[in-house]
Amino acid sequence: MGEHDEARRAFLLKSAVGVGAMAGTALPGEALARARGRHGGEAKAVESAPAKTTSAHGGTENRGLFLNEDEFATVAAFAERLMPGAPGKAGAKEAGVANYIDQALAGAYSDQQEFYRHGLKALDAQSNELHGDAFLYLKPEQQDAVVTALEAGKAPAFSWPAAQAFFNTLRTHTMEGMFSDPVYGGNRDFAGWKLVGFPGAQRLYTQADMLSTEPFKRAAIGLQSVEKTSNRRG
C-alpha cells in the first residue's frame, strides 16, 4: 500500500464512521475491500456478507434477503437524501426504508430485482463521473446533485433503467417504506406515520373527530397492534 492508499484508507475509515454509521453497514473491512478493488486494478463487486446484527441503528441493518451489503447501503443512502432525517423528524434511515425495499425485492417486487441491480450500478457510475466516487461515499450535497441529475433525466450513465425511471421507482419505494405498516419492514416504530400525523389503521372515527380542526390525538394503530377497537358503532 502506497502513501496514497494510506490516505485513502484513513478517509474511508472516517467515512465509515460518518456516512457509514448511519447506514450501519459500510464497515471498515468492506471499505478496504472496495479500496483494494478500486486501486488494486481489478474492480470486483463485494460479495454479500451474512446479516449484521450489531447495528446501533436498528432497522437499518441488512438482513440479506436480496440486496448485498453495498447495494443495501447505497439504497439506504439514496432514500435518506429523498427523505432526510433531522432532529425530531424521522428520515428514511430511521424508518428502515432500505429494509422495506430489501424485503419487497425478495418478495412482492421480485420482478424488479434486475431493475435495481442495473440501476444501482449506473448510479455508482454516474456518481463516479460527477464526483469521482461511488454514491455511498459522496458528501450529502454531492449525493443531492446526483439525485437531481437523475430526476432531470440528465444522467448519461443510465441506459436501462432510464435515470428518471430509477429515480421515480426509488422515490415511490421510499415513500412506501416510510408510510406502509411496519409489518413490511419499514415505518419502524411508526416513524413515518408520526412524521406526518397519520394514526394508521384506526377502525372508527366519530363525527366530532371528523369535524375537529385540531391534530388527531389517539395513538397510531398498526396491523400488529394488540389493542382492538370495536368494529361497529352504536
Binding site: 437524501r81 429523498l82 427523505m83 433531522a86 428520515g91 415513500m175 408510510f179 406502509s180 412524521l195 397519520f198
Partner: peptide, 27 residues
C-alpha cells in the same frame, strides 16, 4: 393514506418532490 398523498399530492410550485423541504411540506 400517506402513501397516496406522497404519490399524488404534488407540492406547490417552488417546493421540490424530495429532500428536507419536501419532508417538511408533507409533514
Amino acid at each position: 393514506g400517506p402513501i397516496g398523498a406522497a404519490g399524488s399530492l404534488t407540492p406547490p410550485p417552488g417546493t421540490p418532490r424530495w429532500g428536507a423541504a419536501y419532508r417538511d411540506f408533507l409533514s
